[in-house]
């Protein structure tokens, strides 16, 4: 059934922050619930710190509030210290596997795509993660925004070869 290009190339996968080094271990599917548990915590933080608030995003882009800069800045500092320690101490996963990092390669997409996403971020007041938390918070109409985002991704995939990278 599958004939050509079953796997996208390594570079594309790493650019998309997809898992490039596949685990040799095979886990039963329900092991994925540990990632769902992390997601639940993330979702709660999104709501409790008002990160998914459309108003907070507008305040960020109007420089009326430090809140979002504080959240992202602190997250980067904590993340960077963690990554540094993981590399330095060669921390392994809970299954004893090596933790690996892949360098991101620069391409023009980061400029054009980045600005296009920025425009959308300011309109919807949400990046892809908060969209799901907004839906969870009871604003059912956000399903339209999510469906549109999926459509946008599909259009990108369709015309990817014609776009400058």
């Amino acid at each position: 059934m599958k004939t050509k290009q079953v796997e996208t190339d390594f570079e594309v996968r790493s650019l998309d922050s997809m898992c490039v080094n596949e685990s040799e271990l095979v886990h039963p599917w329900w092991h994925n619930f540990k990632y769902a548990a992390v997601g639940v915590i993330f979702g709660i933080v999104f709501i409790k710190a008002e990160i998914i608030s459309w108003f907070r995003i507008q305040e960020m882009f109007k420089l009326q509030s430090f809140h979002m800069y504080g959240v992202i800045g602190t997250a980067v500092v904590v993340g960077a210290i963690s990554v540094f320690l993981i590399k330095k101490l060669q921390v392994k996963t809970v299954h004893g596997e090596e933790i690996t990092f892949t360098d991101k390669k620069f391409n023009q997409g980061q400029i054009y795509g980045g600005m296009i996403f920025g425009l959308g971020w300011a309109i919807t007041g949400a990046c892809p993660g908060p969209l799901f938390a907004q839906l969870g918070s009871g604003t059912l109409a956000i399903i339209v925004v999510i469906a549109s985002a999926i459509a946008g991704t599909w259009v990108y995939g369709k015309f990817r070869d014609q776009l400058p990278h």
Partner: peptide, 26 residues
């Protein structure tokens, strides 16, 4: 707005989490 988010994030190869947090952390 939704289309711009979906198109732009994939074109850029990531969003606030993949680039701004994970990418900058690394």
């Amino acid at each position: 707005g939704g289309c711009l988010v979906g198109f732009g994030t994939r074109y850029a190869g990531g969003c606030t989490s993949g680039h701004a947090i994970m990418g900058l952390s690394d």
